[in-house]
Amino acid sequence: MATETAAADHGAEGGGLVFHPMDQFIVKPLFGEGEVHWYTITNVTLWMALAVLAVFALMVMMTSRRATIPTKGQSIAEMAYGFVYKMVEDVAGKDAVPFFPYVMTLFMFIVFANFLGLLPMSFTTTSHFAVTVVLALAVFLTVTIYGFMKNGAHFLNLFWVSSAPLPLRPILAVIELISYFVRPVSHSIRLAGNVMAGHAVIKVFAGFAAIAIISPVSIVAITAMYGLEVLVAFIQAYVFTILTCVYLKDALHPGH
C-alpha cells in the first residue's frame, strides 16, 4: 500500500518507485523453501550465531593471552567489562554484583546484534518484538521473582509510596502498579522500535535513490542516517542495560 501511493506520486518521473522497507525483517529458512517451524534453521539462527561468535571472539579469544599489558582487543574486552560492571555497581548497588554476568549477557547480545544488523544485507535480530519481548520479560520476571524472594511481602512497598500523604497513596499505588506492568512493554518496544525505525528509514531513502535527480540527496541522507544508527545501536543497548540495572535496584531495595 505504501508502495502504490509512492509509485503513484512519483510514477511520472521515476518510472515506478519500489518501496519494501519491511522486507529486510522477513524471517526465512536458510536452506531451501518451506514452512518456518520452531526448530527450522533460519536467518535468525545465522545472525544470532554470528552474535554469539562475535562475543566469543571478543571476550574469550582476545583475552586468551591474559596479558598484564593488554593488546587492543583485550583492552576493548576489558573496557566492556568495566563499563557494565561499573553500571551494575553504581546504578543497582553493590549487592547486585551477582547479577553482573546476567546483565553482561544482555548487553553483549544486544550490542552485537545491533551492530551486526548494521552490516548491509544483514538481518537485525533485535528489530523483532519476539526477541525483545523475551529479553524484557526475562528482566521483568527476574526482578519480580527475585524481589519477592528477597524481600517477601515487603516488596509491595514499591507500590505503597510511604512518603506521600495518606489519601494520595491508593491513587499512587494504582499508578505505580500500572507503570510497573508497562515496564516490560516499553522496555521491549523501545529497543525493537528504535532499531526497526532506523533500518526502515534507511530503506525508504534507498528507495528514493531510484530517481536519478534525487539519488545524491538520497545517498547523503542514507549516510547521515547510518551514522545516527551506529549511535542508536550503542545507545539502545546502553539504555536497555541501564534500565535493567534500575529495575534490579527496585528488586533489591524496594523502599522509595
Binding site: M48, V52, F56, P101, T125, H128, A130, V131
Partner: peptide
C-alpha cells in the same frame, strides 16, 4: 522459531561469559 534460537543464543553467551 525466534524465541527458540534466542534462548539458545543467550544461554551460549551466558555460558561463555
Amino acid at each position: 522459531n525466534q524465541i527458540f534460537w534466542l534462548i539458545i543464543a543467550l544461554a551460549a553467551i551466558y555460558f561463555i561469559l
